[in-house]
Amino acid sequence: MRAPIVAALLGLSLAACESGPRANLFVVLPNPDGTSGAISVDDGRKVVVLDRPYAASQLRSGVAESVDVSEQDVQAAFGPAIAARPILPARFRLYFMLNTDQLTTESEVLYLSVFEDIRRRTVYQVDVVGHTDTVGTRSYNQQLSSQRATTIRDRLVKDGLQPGSITVSGRGEADLALATADEIYEPRNRRVEITVR
């Protein structure tokens, strides 16, 4: 009976330090903004939807029951898995001057922060995807978007990234950040999106 006392002293809940077999446990965590998505738990007889932070379901002998969990319970039951979580992927949008593969002044600064982000990671993969606005033909824009992406890729490699860790593609005017009619100048669509993970 000493285990519960030790648990209390350590600030852990009994649920996390249960003796006997450990039940299957499913917990929804909050997003950084405090909201959450949802998971549905189907045990073959019924479906339980967990759709708020720290909503949890425990399965004992095949029977799902709702349980309350605290942050401490979560740390006690899942600490190592949470500690092993990789740095989450980050996305950057670099903008280009009209009809060029040259970055705007603001995006030159952002380019440096892409590097800062990569430096935090032990290993990395980078996707570089080019886009244009709707001025010009589709085929011209396809080529321009590829050129923008390739320019950024080459620069990343020149600045020290491994070529094998970078993928490059161009989406032309097929994937507008801001929907417009054809032949519309839109600086926010002239961009390269970089995902670092």
Binding site: R22, A23, N24, L25, F26, V27, V28, L29, P30, N31, S36, G37, A38, I39, S40, V41, D42, D43, G44, L50, L59, G62, A64, V74, A77, F78, A81, I82
Partner: peptide, 14 residues
Amino acid sequence: TTVLGVRGTRFLVR
């Protein structure tokens, strides 16, 4: 014993 469906979220499974 279960199947979880995921709608854009962070979650834990034991």
